[in-house]
């Protein structure tokens, strides 16, 4: 099939922005957590899947008569609680023991594997759709690019959550405490910040955002237990190329990655997306390891 040059570019841009918004949601939570604890929380992807499956359970498995927005809020809350639980049960005891980053990372990898398989046991490992009768459907067209309403919600959420986080970081006591822990946890504790409580909250918020990302993906393309792996890898890459631990960096990195992936497959098969993402990561690590936004 011949697709004329003029038609495909707007769609590629639209796809890049959509992908960027999804990756941004993952990267924002991931970076928030990384900023305070300084380790790669690989369970983040599985937490996103948990959020999506919580919504699936509410709308499909039990068919509860709740509004779709309420269901999503509950899903995000569930993801947040799971993230918080991981922090309390696994990461905090490890931090107390002064475990290295690698130990924390391997532990989170274990948590990731267990959560993912657990979802598969509860909901089967099949690919399932999340949309419901009360859901959002339809699409809009901008300069020849087709964007579904779900995808509009994705882009809006990405930007809105970024703005909210930026506001919290700048104008609230909590945000200041987080940035103090980012700089030096020991010193933060010395000046009277309850670091464990703050980190617990950070895990809850970061994981809830991941849950939102998982839910939105679910409405956009569908859900499967292994969806977390892809989300996690892309979110991680986005935060690293943007500048790991930095709020704006993760956001920017996500869109850079979205564009790189979608324009990268302009001439070749879409199956190469993941490989392109990692090539971008490795090039960035070699050339500019501190990310786009330097700390």
């Amino acid at each position: 099939m011949y697709i004329p040059y003029v038609d495909i570019v707007p769609q590629l841009i639209a796809n890049s922005v959509i992908a960027g918004a999804i990756y941004a949601l993952i990267a924002l939570g991931f970076n928030l957590i990384y900023g305070t604890t300084k380790f790669f929380n690989l369970a983040h992807g599985a937490v996103a899947a948990c959020g999506a499956y919580a919504v699936f359970a509410i709308l499909k498995t039990f068919a509860l008569p709740v509004n779709i927005v309420v269901a999503c809020a509950i899903g995000a809350f569930v993801a947040g609680i799971i993230g918080y639980g991981l922090e309390r049960l696994i990461y905090r005891p490890l931090r107390r023991r002064k475990a290295s980053n690698m130990v924390l990372m391997v532990a989170s990898l274990g948590a990731f594997t267990a959560l993912q398989a657990f979802i598969a046991i509860l909901f089967t490992s099949q690919f399932q759709a999340l949309e419901s009768s009360g859901g959002i459907s339809g699409a809009i067209e901008i300069y020849g690019a087709i964007i579904t309403h779900t995808q509009v919600v994705i882009i809006t959420c990405g930007i809105a959550i970024m703005a909210i986080l930026a506001f919290i970081a700048k104008y609230t006591l909590f945000g200041k405490a987080v940035s103090a822990i980012k700089d030096d946890e020991e010193v933060a504790r010395m000046v009277g910040i309850d670091t464990d409580r703050i980190i617990g909250k950070v895990f809850f918020i970061g994981s809830a955002i991941a849950g939102v990302a998982g839910i939105l993906i679910g409405f956009d393309t569908g859900i499967e237990p292994t969806m977390g792996m892809n989300l996690l890898l892309k979110g991680t890459i986005a935060s690293i190329i943007g500048g790991v631990g930095s709020l704006y960096g993760g956001f920017l990195g996500a869109f850079v990655l979205g564009f790189a992936e979608n324009f990268g497959i302009w001439k070749i098969s879409g199956e190469w997306k993941d490989a392109i993402a990692f090539v971008v990561l490795i090039v960035f690590l070699l050339v500019r390891p501190e990310g786009i936004i330097k700390k």
Binding site: I90, V106, G110, T113, A114, F118
Partner: peptide, 14 residues
């Protein structure tokens, strides 16, 4: 099996 080896990793790390 996956749940088991995930949990084993977590418990070993702990």
């Amino acid at each position: 099996r996956q749940v088991a080896y995930g949990l084993i990793l977590v418990l070993l790390m702990l």
